[in-house]
């Protein structure tokens, strides 16, 4: 999908907080100078094309009870990676699942983020994912501190 100048305006307006008012799209459309209808149509198209990943909310997960968060790095053979990914992604506690390149002394090529109310829960889940997929080489990296978490601001120049 080619991103037009109007799309860029939409993206700039929507990457900030979405208004909690009765007619939020109308408010944003007014700011951009397009109709509410064309804003909603354009957003629906962006969603369909995968440009817009989601229109929704992200919570402060630690505050709502997900106190234990771990990046789990795995060594997964390339030829079974898609299959392993499918199994791991099926679990709702797995929010992110990526392949990544390796580095010297760093054989891990597959990454998952998992979240739970305790480290015990996370460890148990990881054991279960390991059993389900047969992947035995992995490491848990629990989050100790969030230094920064923001959304990217696109097209700011």
């Amino acid at each position: 999908m080619v991103i037009s100048e109007v799309d860029k305006k939409i993206i700039r307006a929507l990457q900030n907080d979405f208004p909690i008012v009765s007619e939020p799209y109308k408010a944003i459309a007014g700011e951009i100078g397009i109709s509410e209808e064309s804003l909603m149509q354009r957003l629906a198209l962006m969603k369909e094309k995968g440009v817009l990943r989601k229109m929704g909310a992200v919570l402060r997960h630690v505050d709502v009870g997900f106190k234990a968060n771990a990046l789990v790095v795995w060594v997964v053979p390339e030829e079974i990676m898609d299959e392993v990914a499918q199994k791991m992604c099926a679990h709702p506690a797995v929010t992110h699942c990526y392949d990544r390149n390796t580095a010297p002394n760093w054989p891990y090529n597959f990454y998952t983020m998992i979240h739970g109310d305790s480290e015990e829960y996370c460890a148990k889940l990881v054991k279960q994912l390991s059993d389900e997929t047969g992947i035995k080489e992995y490491e848990l990296q629990f989050t100790e501190k969030e230094w920064k978490k923001t959304s990217m601001k696109y097209y700011m120049e």
């Binding site: 999908m1 907080d17 979405f18 440009v51 229109m55 992200v58 402060r60 709502v64 696109y154």
Partner: peptide, 16 residues
Amino acid sequence: GYVRKIGAFFNSDKLG
């Protein structure tokens, strides 16, 4: 503070 952000989440890969 329970809600970090309400809004649009874009796919950076598709925005260049």
